[in-house]
Nucleic acid binder design. Structure first.
Length: 290
DNA sequence: ATGCCTGAAGGGTTCAGA
């Protein structure tokens, strides 16, 4: 049975991460990859790796700007109905490149990079909350077969940070942020990684400093939120910690979710890469330790 | 050290990230 592999990864600069991204695509073989913090204009991204992605069979949807933000969807299960940005979303002061959506393999894929918030109570924090509200309204009007992937910049609960005491008074863990995320999920989205690992220590981000990754002192802020018809197809959901190791990693690890074929067999047009190696099955468990 | 790394822009330093 053919499965569809969805991944989301905050790459923290595609330009800097190129030596990590391409081998990761070859190794993990995601059919859909949602990327955040590309930090490239659309033209620069196409110039930098358009050919490399096309050679791997990916159609690419990009929404970027010069130095900050930037999101992209790579798909080899079709890509249609492309929408760059989040309609009606607030800006800071102008709209930033933080969302892109498309229908891929019968699934409405929404790739997001939620604003950081900087400091609770700040203008940027209010912007973050308003942006999350716009995202909820947008998703509420969409199909059930939706998946919202990306860097939510919110840890859903205290179980999603290494030490709640370390984050008192900081963004990502405040009640209003968690409420905004819960309201988004209340539209009908499952947190598929937490569903699969209800009691595990699972993080997706570790600060670069002070050996935080090697001590496993992180947060789970990169999420895959799936509507019911997608969530019930989930067969594996895990964090690719290998991608956080080694030379010049992003500070975020990818989240990988495997879906069984849709009941009606409709997974959209599949375009195999011209000369791809055989797809490997990924681990069905969390690679939490080396 | 309460910004401990990393990246970007721009210029020899500052801002942003979570």
């Amino acid at each position: 049975m053919r499965r569809v592999r969805i991944a989301t990864w905050n790459v923290n600069s595609l330009k800097q991460r190129l030596p990590r991204l391409l081998p990761w695509l070859d190794d993990r073989q995601p059919d859909l990859a949602c990327l955040q913090e590309t930090k490239l204009t659309d033209d620069a991204l196409a110039e930098l790796l358009g050919d490399d992605l096309a050679a791997r069979g990916y159609t690419v949807a990009i929404h970027g700007e010069g130095a900050w933000n930037g999101v992209a969807i790579l798909s080899r299960v079709g890509l249609e109905g492309l929408l760059a940005g989040l309609p009606g979303a607030p800006g800071f002061p102008h709209q930033e490149a933080r969302a892109i959506s498309a229908t891929c393999g019968g699934i409405r894929v929404v790739c997001v990079y939620v604003p950081n918030g900087r400091e609770p109570g700040s203008e940027h924090y209010r912007y973050k909350l308003a942006w999350l509200s716009s995202l909820r309204e947008f998703v509420a009007g969409g199909p059930e077969a939706t998946v919202v992937c990306g860097d939510m910049n919110v840890a859903p609960t205290d179980d999603d940070v290494f030490d709640p005491a370390a984050y008192v008074g900081q963004t990502h863990v405040t009640a209003p942020e968690r409420a905004a995320l819960a309201e988004l999920q209340a539209v009908g989205l499952r947190d598929v990684v937490r569903d699969r690992w209800p009691n595990e220590r699972v993080f997706t981000y570790w600060d670069y400093r002070a050996g935080m990754f090697h001590q496993d002192l992180g947060m789970r802020i990169d999420l895959v939120l799936a509507g019911a018809t997608v969530a019930e197809r989930v067969r594996a959901a895990w964090v690719d910690r290998q991608a956080r190791k080694g030379r010049r990693p992003s500070d975020h690890a990818p989240v990988v979710v495997d879906l069984d074929e849709a009941p009606d067999g409709d997974i959209g047009p599949v375009v195999p890469p011209p000369s791809a190696p055989a797809a490997r099955g990924g681990p069905g468990r969390l690679p939490q330790s080396s």
